[in-house]
Amino acid sequence: MSDFLVVGGGVIGMMTTLQLADAGHSVTLVERGQCGREASWAGGGIVSPLYPWRYSAPISRLSAWSEGRYPELALRLLEETGVDPEYRQKGLLYLRVDDERDAMAWAREVGKPLERVSGDFLYDKEPEAVPGCADALWMPTLGSIRNPRLARALHARLADMPRVTLHEHCEVQGLREQGGRIVAVETNEGELHGDQVVVCGGAWAAEVLTTVGVELPVRPVKGQMILFKAPPGLVRRVVLMDGRYVIPRADGRVLAGSTLEETGFDKSLSESARESLWTSATGIVPALADCEVEHHWAGLRPGSPDGVPFIGAVPGIDNLHVNAGHFRNGLVLAPASTRLLVDELLGREPIVDPAPYRLKGR
């Protein structure tokens, strides 16, 4: 029996496993498919909520802690695995922000560099941005990470750790409770056991917990994205306008996203979404209209009622814990939300007040 059994092999589950193994514990990680191939793979990789001043304090606290950890994590994983997660701190340009006053007030309150810049500044940074902008908002410290490569690096590191056992393509069918404890995790390959069980199942977390009568208000919310095959340097940094964004990669490719769709667990693609994303992306950077759309995909975010994740012990079951419901900010919040739960699991001083994230009372 492992010290910990983690259900769900996305970025949340893998970071949880890494931290527990770093602390000297044995960990079994169970993933219904391939680790890192659901929402963790499908997202854009911006290491900030899109409009951070529009979020509640609990999300802002986790985000602020997480942002500073990605450079160190990316360097560690590159050194240990040879896989470069491609963390890039090139800043973010906001175009056509209609609540600028709120944005600036937020920045002053949290001590975040955010400034109103001229059109000349904008076009010096992004010459191909949509013409005619007299000004923009500029956040120089914002970074992005190439999330599929982050997931690949985390997987490679875990696969090389003797304290970690990976069970991929292993579907959890239910949890078995006895005497107020989880005594087995039932899968299509038989029972697995861990002294403590942590559910990090993303959009599927609620389905796992219902097997022991726990109702978790987490639902799948589909997001579609497209990828342009662009020449290096066409887009240099993240640009956000009217709720949509473009994100450059080191090889020149540019992601554009994303939709928000309540379609259950349906991940099918639609031509209307593709056209909408193309229109938004070429509205931000018109030159993308001359670039091939190389890929179009969808992922399922773990939506929660207020976007604040559920992190902590499951009331009434001594050894069951959850970390799910990050909605659009799973990658953004992953370092902090996993550290917060691991602090709780190991009896350490928490990095932030855990009360707003607990299941009890929400």
Rank of each mutant, 00 (worst) to 15 (best):
W297L: 10
A156D: 08
D84Y: 07
N329H: 04
D306N: 15
V332L: 15
E171P: 02
L260N: 11
T16L: 12
A136K: 01
A184E: 06
M14D: 06
V7S: 09
L77W: 08
G174Y: 00
E38M: 06
H321L: 03
R149P: 07
W41R: 09
L142Q: 14
G179C: 01
E168Y: 00
C291M: 01
V185D: 09
P302R: 05
G111C: 11
P350F: 00
S144I: 12
H155N: 05
E271C: 13
N188W: 00
S40E: 02
R146E: 14
S270A: 07
A57S: 08
E215T: 14
L192C: 00
R54H: 08
E86R: 15
T28L: 02
R61T: 04
G68W: 12
G91P: 09
A151M: 14
V332C: 15
G44T: 10
D22M: 01
G43R: 07
V30W: 00
C133E: 15
V83Y: 01
R37L: 03
V322I: 10
N147L: 11
E79I: 04
P309W: 11
G119E: 09
V221C: 15
R219N: 05
I311G: 13
I351L: 15
P220T: 01
D160T: 00
A103G: 15
H326T: 06
L300T: 07
G9I: 02
L154E: 04
L62D: 10
D22E: 14
P52R: 12
V342I: 12
G325I: 14
P302F: 03
R37P: 00
L277E: 07
G44L: 12
L240K: 03
M139H: 09
I351W: 10
L20A: 12
I311Q: 13
L288P: 07
M161T: 06
G111T: 13
E31M: 06
W138V: 02
K360D: 08
P71G: 09
V322W: 05
R253H: 15
V212Y: 05
W278R: 11
G233L: 02
A136D: 00
L300W: 08
E31S: 04
L288N: 08
A107R: 08
R76D: 11
V352I: 10
V308Q: 12
H326G: 07
P220Y: 01
D306K: 14
V246M: 14
K90F: 08
D195Y: 00
E271S: 14
